[in-house]
């Protein structure tokens, strides 16, 4: 079958997908004793990158230094790799795998590239500050009814809706 003409399957019912995600989170708590997390693994990769560029400086730094000489030996690093693999398996088996820079038809690749990069920088930075991202803090902490997680969810939506207007151009067709 020619993959360019393959029609992507439709997405799962969002409520059932959410139910499956919730059960996965319960599984994670029951097996690992910790929730789902993505930014923790990313931060470990940041530390490894920093180690590769300036090993002495990184080892002496206060935050990354606390993770020792092998920051990648951490369960969330493996979880993040799992997410990448699981995403790939799902995309390929539902004919949604596509090498593309997603953007609106009227938006230049350069603009979308810059927005994605800057957004990434802000998310990478702030998820360290808040000790987690939408997975580890909002979803996993929220399910345990933690005050900080609930506050984080509200702050994320507040920040997102406040900024959305100014970056809407990237989705204009």
């Amino acid at each position: 079958m020619d993959k360019h003409t393959a029609v992507p399957q439709s997405h799962w019912n969002p409520y059932l997908a959410g139910t499956a995600l919730g059960l996965t989170l319960v599984l994670s708590y029951a097996v690992l004793g910790a929730g789902l997390g993505a930014s923790g693994g990313l931060a470990r990769a940041s530390a490894a990158l920093s180690c590769a560029i300036a090993p002495d400086h990184t080892r002496m730094s206060e935050y990354f230094g606390g993770w020792g000489g092998q920051p990648l030996r951490y369960y969330l690093v493996f979880m993040l790799l799992g997410v990448l693999g699981g995403g790939a398996v799902s995309a390929v088996t539902s004919d949604r795998f596509r090498l593309a820079l997603e953007r609106g038809g009227a938006c230049s690749a350069r603009k979308r590239f810059i927005f994605a990069l800057l957004g990434g920088v802000m998310v990478g930075f702030s998820s360290r500050l808040a000790q987690g991202c939408t997975s580890g803090q909002a979803l996993s902490g929220g399910a345990l009814l933690l005050t900080g997680s609930m506050v984080f969810v509200c702050a994320v939506f507040a920040g997102g809706y406040a900024a959305a207007y100014f970056v809407r151009g990237q989705w204009h067709d």
Binding site: L117, V151, F152, A155, G159
Partner: peptide, 13 residues
Amino acid sequence: GGLIFGVGFAMGA
């Protein structure tokens, strides 16, 4: 952190 995250989330999508 949540506010900055939200801005980054909307921007990077």
